[in-house]
Amino acid sequence: MLQGKVALVTGASRGIGRAIALELARHGAKVAVNYAGSEAKAKEVVEEIEQMGGEAFMVQANVASSEAVEQMVKEVVERFGRIDILVNNAGITRDNLLMRMKEEEWDDVINTNLKGVFHCTKAVTRPMMKQRFGRIVNIASIVGVSGNPGQANYVAAKAGVIGFTKTAAKELASRNITVNAIAPGFITTDMTDRLSEDVRTEMLKQIPLARFGEPEDIAKVVSFLVSDAANYITGQTIHVDGGMVM
């Protein structure tokens, strides 16, 4: 399905990003596995892809830094000759009630989760425009649509990503570059494992499909959005949340 395609997945060492990297590789894409700090985990992802007969390499970059991102994209293009797919997945949380939130907590989350999307998208635009082909998928969050107490920074960043997605989609459509977002609901990852049992029980009540999602639930929608089956979809935000927000 994705034979000959080259994909860059940010924050691909763990959680949803890891599942996305593996899923794209399973469909034949060559994958650049970006990570910021978890080198050992990123290595595991690369090895797993190689074991299934795919091609991958790991590339360190903090997406909040424009220089690091430009260097990363250069490396991907040098290594694989092109770049067809970008999945902006890297994200962090620094939860706190609005009244207690420090400026630093706000800035950290905005810089990685929103500015990082800007840097990466900008950096791939040039090669994608030249190719007259590109598929960009931004991993937003359902809380960017619904709001969530204790996550003003995270929610603002994710809502920003949804708006950014629509604008990038309009700017780049004439060059056959589609830009879509996925808004995951409650997915079992390190990020959500941190939540207390009470919060989890409470959240489960709000999910019509009555279960938490798995990283693979998101990865499959990514592989759909970057495949030929989704050629006519752009600027959309797909909720993958078990029906939590409608």
């Binding site: 040039r126 425009m129 030249k130 700017e171 004439s174 060059r175």
Partner: peptide, 9 residues
């Protein structure tokens, strides 16, 4: 605008 960006490229 996009054409101009591409021309410059």
């Amino acid at each position: 605008s996009l054409d101009v960006v591409e021309l410059v490229m």
